[in-house]
């Protein structure tokens, strides 16, 4: 028992060591603050994000001297409250896209690399074709034809985001299947399914986590771009991208309207990229050359 606790403690201690790396620390801190903000938005946000008050329209930021810290928009809605609620959409989409595409990509990639042959050929052809579309354009096409909703948006992004996971998982599965421990499992009579689930996939998790951070960053930027173009989630939900889009008409008069939503996107994406980069350095410095976009 004491031995087991010792093991848990030391591996927990090892995990804590990770946070001594500045990139991982800063990245995790930024994401944690956003997660808390998004989760508890109703408690934290000073105002209802959709409550209009035309008497208080277009107030400049009051900083600490008034209730509307970051000012109000042309409809008198509180900018800070809308930004806090906007974190929800960005994070939900970022996390959902990273997880779903990770699941699809790792599954197809490990199957593709492990079995090779015809399965591999078909999956690789799909990879090649989906990768041939410029990233955001495919999502634009899907949304233009299938209409706007949260589900279509996430599906449109996942349809391309699983590719980087799949490529890396395939390459790793190809080399893993020749390793001794896999041979040993096979000699003991393990089925292909069991080998994949118990021996191949667990080894793909660390790299997939790194790819996942970049997928999340890319999904958040894509969502903001699509909302900016009016092709994102429905207008009634405040998002950073749609706030920027609304701000375009007021650039010359109200600087705070375009500045803050963009800063939130930049800091969020920066935080996720820092975390991903830190994890990658930690896992394998060589990985830093794997292409991702």
């Amino acid at each position: 028992m004491s031995k087991m606790t010792g093991v848990t403690y030391s591996s927990f201690g090892k995990q804590l060591q990770l946070f001594k790396q500045p990139k991982i620390f800063v990245g995790t801190l930024i994401i944690a603050v956003l997660l808390v903000g998004g989760l508890f938005a109703p408690l934290i946000a000073p105002f209802d994000p959709n409550k209009q008050n035309l008497d208080l329209a277009m107030l400049a930021p009051q900083w600490l001297s008034g209730p509307h810290v970051l000012g109000t928009d042309p409809l008198g809605r509180d900018v800070l409250s809308r930004l806090i609620y906007g974190a929800r959409v960005s994070l939900i989409i970022g996390i959902a896209v990273a997880l779903l595409s990770g699941f699809i990509g790792v599954t197809l990639g490990s199957v593709s690399g492990y079995f090779s042959g015809r399965t591999d050929l078909i999956i690789q052809k799909i990879v090649e074709v989906m990768w041939a579309f410029p990233p955001l354009l495919f999502a634009i096409a899907v949304i233009a034809f299938l209409g706007q909703s949260l589900v279509v948006l996430i599906a449109a992004l996942v349809l391309q985001r699983w590719i980087p996971y799949c490529r890396v998982a395939r390459a790793q599965a190809l080399s893993l299947r020749a390793r001794d421990f896999v041979e040993a499992a096979r000699a003991l009579g393990a089925t292909d399914g069991r080998i994949l689930v118990h021996h191949i996939v667990p080894n793909l998790i660390p790299t997939s986590l790194v790819i996942g951070t970049f997928a999340m960053a890319a999904a958040i930027i894509s969502e903001a771009s699509l909302s900016f173009l009016g092709l994102g989630v429905p207008r009634s939900i405040p998002t950073w991208g749609s706030m920027l889009s609304d701000a375009r008409a007021h650039i010359s008069t109200s600087w705070w309207l375009p500045v803050f939503p963009g800063l939130f996107i930049l800091v969020t994406v920066l935080g996720i990229n820092l975390l991903g980069d830190g994890l990658r350095d930690h896992l394998d410095p060589k990985l830093s050359r794997a292409g991702n976009h």
């Binding site: 960053a217 903001a224 900016f228 920027l244 963009g262 930049l266 994406v269 990229n273």
Partner: peptide, 11 residues
């Protein structure tokens, strides 16, 4: 790599 290009444009 983290900059939303459309925000940079607006800025």
């Amino acid at each position: 790599i983290s900059m939303p290009s459309f925000w940079l444009g607006i800025m």
